[in-house]
Design a protein around this nucleic acid. Structure first.
Lengths: 243, 243
DNA sequence: GTGGTTCAATGGTCCAACCAATTTCTGCAC
DNA sequence: GTGCAGAAATTGGTTGGACCATTGAACCAC
């Protein structure tokens, strides 16, 4: 009794605009940073109102695909293709401890899996890149006494990228803003992140040895230390209510 | 209706509109499904043009926070708060086999973690809800000879929801469209999904017994069967180029 | 009740301006 | 020719008003 009667679609102009624009971008082989036609031109060419064009572009802007600069133009921020899948995530109350723990749980799941996949799939080039990031991070850690969040992040990004699955990097990158917001205000925990330091190299060693389960285990240990730091920070935070 | 919604002041109008609207939603304690003021009312109250209101609402619609129904009104689809964090993801080329495998790897990571967390955190009410979905699914499986994708999905949703971390459900729900697209055209694999059937109950048993590692292991087995079905389907697909 | 009809409300689209930020061009001083 | 300030053009942002398409409720005949 499956009544497969999908609703018919009579009007979908702004969607049509986006589809046309996606086709245009593909045909012109436009990449990130390049400028696309002005709203007035698009409206004229597509035979729709400028308002409709603007609504369509607003959608893309909200999805982070495009950046508008008043007086200058509209620029691509990411690669687009006609058959993209959009996953807008919203995390309510992202500023507090609970929200941070929630993202950390996601990160634990993804980081462990990515490390394991990376151990299986990473080739020589990827391994070299990861090791380069690792060296940079360790150097920064020594010279700046533990302040290596930027390099730390780049190491993890390299691992995600070498997992062979672009989704890992994308999801984590989307959550980066939240982590970053936090890393700059370590809740009074002076040595935040120090405990996680040694595990970066143990993870790399397992990956280089093509030991998926080892890499997974080390990644889990790393996240556990971050979780621990976070809980210590939460205790410090109990008294001061920030914003 | 109360006369909240004070006029907007500065530039960055549409952003200000969203902030004001978020505040309004919070003060009125509006929940999902409830209707919010019409565009014309908002424009008048906030002292901005209706177009500006529309651009703001278009943003929220693109983020899946709101649903517009022509002739009816604009309705909340999710809880909103003034300090939300948005993480829009876009994945290119989601239609092909590689894209499907990529999402499945994400699902493996999240499903295993969520099952484990669920085994730790699920209370009596959550357990009962999961078991209800499980019963529905098993019944549908028997009576419709394996066609239980809808109920199957609801079971997994219940598990994610009981994990205590809303991000799991959100990420997976965002990927649902891709899975669903596929489930309706099982690539010629007649008994697609059959192999995964028994693991639903074993997962539930582990969750009910508060056995995190057991639940994780069973979830991994389930995903493995789906992966296997998918690979069989890919072989069938080699010859026919769809769409 | 069932099935149409009417009608007001609401989102969707369009137009024609104007504003604000940016870029580009122009012309003068040197 | 060079450099730079100011004018002009370009472009996204906003406004107000108009009309269309869909929805849903009230109403009416049967």
């Amino acid at each position: 009794m499956t009544d497969l009667l999908p609703p018919i679609q009579t009007t979908a102009r702004d969607d049509a605009v986006l589809k046309a624009l996606a086709g245009f971008v593909r045909q012109e082989a436009l990449g990130p940073g390049e400028k696309l036609p002005t709203e007035r031109i698009l409206a004229e060419r597509l035979k729709v109102s400028r308002n409709t064009v603007r609504e369509a572009l607003t959608r893309w802007e909200g999805l982070g695909l495009v950046e508008r600069r008043q007086g200058s133009g509209t620029y691509l921020k990411a690669a687009v293709s006609p058959d993209m899948l959009h996953m807008p995530l919203t995390l309510a109350g992202g500023n507090d401890f609970a929200g941070l723990m929630a993202t950390l749980e996601i990160r634990r799941a993804l980081e462990a899996e990515a490390a394991a996949l990376c151990a299986i799939r990473a080739g020589k080039a990827e391994l070299a890149e990861i090791e380069r990031k690792l060296d940079l991070m360790e150097e920064a850690f020594q010279t700046r006494d533990g302040m290596s969040s930027e390099e730390d992040w780049e190491f993890h990004q390299a691992v995600f990228r070498a997992s062979g699955n672009p989704l890992f990097e994308q999801i984590i990158a989307a959550m980066y803003e939240m982590f970053h917001r936090f890393w700059e205000h370590p809740l009074g925990v002076r040595d935040f992140g120090h405990a996680s330091f040694p595990y970066h190299r143990t993870i790399f060693n397992c990956i280089a040895a093509h030991d998926p389960e080892g890499a997974r285990a080390e990644a889990l240990k790393l996240i556990a230390t971050v979780e621990d730091d976070l809980k210590r920070g939460a205790a410090n935070l109990k008294l001061s209510d920030r914003r």
